[in-house]
Nucleic acid binder design. Structure first.
Lengths: 196, 196
DNA sequence: TATGGATCCATA
DNA sequence: TATGGATCCATA
């Protein structure tokens, strides 16, 4: 899997200048690039059937990879305030706050909620920042109809930036490495481990 | 149908002091209270089956009533900029701007998008304000699972207020008048006219 | 019971 | 093709 774009929605320049933040970006890149399909292919290939691939296994693979890098998925996290926020994956920072990542697999409308969930955590000082990861519109063509995608959320980026909430908020656009008609469709319920 | 609550999310005190705004609130109240089920009962009664009632006919009845009061549903509106915004119902103001109303019937996550849609219109100066109408949690119990409801959006109200966008933004909580096991369930696809 | 999601539909 | 919706599922 590859990263096409990292769009900065909010950045007050403070947390983004820390080494904690650099480590977070490294982890995210590593986890995205680690997602393989088929396993061992050295890349992420979809079979080209439009609306033909389920999204959950891809997300599971990413979250599992972050777990390996020391992050906590929403079931692992112990801090009560963070646990209630039900953020896909979080990591604790040197100052006791957290950083949250959402990998969007629901309907595009739930991408609006995901951004709100991250901004709410920032506004309430639990989060130093957050990242929402979305498929490109090109990748979206091969996934479950109406799932969140970068292009469809783009018209709202300016609105989402129009606030004085402190911290860093990014939206990262990802994409498959190519189409390969010989690979099977990714089905709903497939074990995410199979994609790392 | 009755109104339980009018929550002010944004109000800069300017548009909210106009007679245009008073007329808008009157129209909304009139349209909500005009929704009857069964027709002629003088109220809005649900049959008490949990998750048993479709929401579209209720919305259709409300939008049709606003049309009668001079508002434009998303298919009627002619102004190109407003038309693109796909707001459920709008009305043109004395100053050439518009006011928008969304009656939420989709998933709760789409209520986040509906608020963003209204705030975007306000930020871009097309709208002087907007209203989102949501069922109470009590009413939600009898509607399609996971539809937008006031209580579930409430934790986000403070975040939604945390911006300096000009104009008025309200969230109105509505509720049925009572339960009557003798009335039929409201089914998907039922003509909204039947509920006015 | 509460909340995030996953999926497919309708219409311009 | 693009966008808002409508519905039901999974899990804590």
């Amino acid at each position: 899997m590859k990263i096409l774009n990292k769009k900065v929605i909010l950045d007050d320049g403070i947390f983004s200048s820390t080494t904690d933040y650099q480590k977070i970006l490294d982890d995210i890149e590593q986890a995205v690039y680690a997602i393989e399909y088929p396993v061992g292919s050295g890349g992420f290939y979809l079979n080209g059937e439009r609306k033909g691939n389920g999204v959950k296994p891809i997300k599971d693979a990413f979250i599992e990879k972050l777990n390996e890098l020391g992050w906590d998925d929403e079931r692992k996290v112990l801090n009560p305030s963070i646990r209630k926020r039900k953020i896909d994956s979080t990591i604790e920072l040197s100052d006791g706050r957290f950083f949250g990542v959402e990998w969007e697999t629901g309907n595009i409308s739930s991408s609006h909620r995901a951004i709100n969930r991250l901004q709410k955590g920032m506004l309430e000082q639990d989060l130093a920042g957050g990242i929402l990861i979305l498929p490109s519109r090109e990748m979206y063509n091969y996934l479950t109809d109406r799932v969140g995608n970068f292009k469809e959320l783009e018209p709202y980026f300016e609105l989402m930036s129009h606030t004085n909430i402190n911290g860093v908020l990014l939206i990262i656009e990802i994409e498959h490495d190519g189409i390969d008609p010989s690979v099977p469709s990714i089905k709903k319920g497939t074990d995410g481990r199979a994609l790392i």
